[in-house]
Amino acid sequence: MLGDLNKRELLDLIENQVIGRLGCHANGETYIVPVNYVYRDNMIYLHSGMGKKIEMMRANPRVCFQIDEIKDTFRWKSAILHGNFIELSGEERQQAMQGIIHRIMPLTDRPSEEPSHGIKPELHEGIVVCKIELTEISGRCETHEEYD
């Protein structure tokens, strides 16, 4: 059965996942890419090296973010979030980066080989840390009792 996720189901989905898909649009081009993220206080926090998505978000800060949990073809949850890209600096940047590292690193099977979330220390200064200030959230799901 298809349905809408209620607010608690949406928050559970967003808080429990660590990979989402970021959608950017600038200069007539749309770009979607998977990213690691942390959700806190109605914000999605992420980091990236310089490249296409950062250039596009700087040109057009309005973004879309998609998160899902798929058990199989007939049992899934999906959230669509809209918001605005904000590049971070100073203490807020440092806190966001630490939050990302602490959330993602326990999920790797080789944490000692991947310091600071797989980013070589000499490259940390070139990393862009940002947040997406959420303006709209919605979610859908499909469930079937016969498959549970």
Rank of each mutant, 00 (worst) to 15 (best):
M1K: 02
G3F: 01
G3A: 05
G3K: 06
D4R: 09
D4G: 02
L5P: 03
K7P: 01
L10A: 04
L11G: 04
I14M: 06
E15R: 15
V18M: 03
G20T: 06
G23R: 13
H25W: 07
H25S: 13
A26M: 04
G28H: 02
T30F: 12
Y31V: 10
I32H: 12
P34C: 15
N36P: 05
Y37P: 00
Y37M: 00
Y37V: 00
V38M: 06
V38L: 10
V38I: 04
R40Q: 03
R40D: 06
D41G: 11
D41C: 10
N42H: 11
N42C: 11
M43F: 15
M43N: 14
Y45G: 02
Y45P: 04
L46D: 05
H47A: 14
G49P: 02
G51S: 14
G51M: 13
K53Y: 07
I54A: 08
E55G: 08
M56S: 14
M57V: 11
R58S: 12
R58K: 14
N60W: 07
R62P: 01
R62G: 04
V63N: 08
V63T: 12
F65T: 01
F65V: 05
F65Y: 11
I67L: 06
E69K: 15
E69V: 12
E69H: 14
E69T: 12
K71Q: 13
K71C: 10
D72P: 01
D72R: 02
F74L: 14
R75V: 14
W76Q: 00
S78F: 06
S78T: 05
A79L: 00
A79W: 00
I80A: 03
I80G: 01
L81R: 01
H82V: 01
G83F: 00
G83Y: 00
G83M: 00
F85H: 01
G90P: 08
E91I: 15
E91T: 14
E92F: 06
Q94F: 11
Q94Y: 08
Q95D: 08
Q95T: 10
A96K: 07
M97D: 13
M97Q: 15
Q98S: 11
G99S: 08
I100G: 01
I100E: 04
I101M: 03
I101W: 03
R103K: 15
R103A: 07
I104Y: 04
I104T: 00
L107G: 13
L107V: 01
L107E: 07
T108Q: 03
D109H: 12
D109E: 12
R110G: 05
S112R: 06
S116Q: 09
S116C: 05
G118E: 07
I119E: 08
I119S: 10
K120Y: 08
K120Q: 12
K120R: 12
E122V: 10
L123R: 11
L123M: 09
H124R: 13
E125G: 15
E125V: 14
I127G: 05
I127M: 13
I127N: 05
V128P: 05
V128M: 03
V128W: 02
C130R: 07
I132Q: 01
I132L: 08
I132M: 05
I132E: 01
E133R: 07
L134P: 10
T135C: 15
I137N: 04
I137P: 00
S138G: 01
G139D: 13
C141H: 06
E142L: 10
E142K: 12
E142V: 11
H144M: 11
E145K: 12
E145C: 10
E146S: 11
D148I: 11
D148H: 10
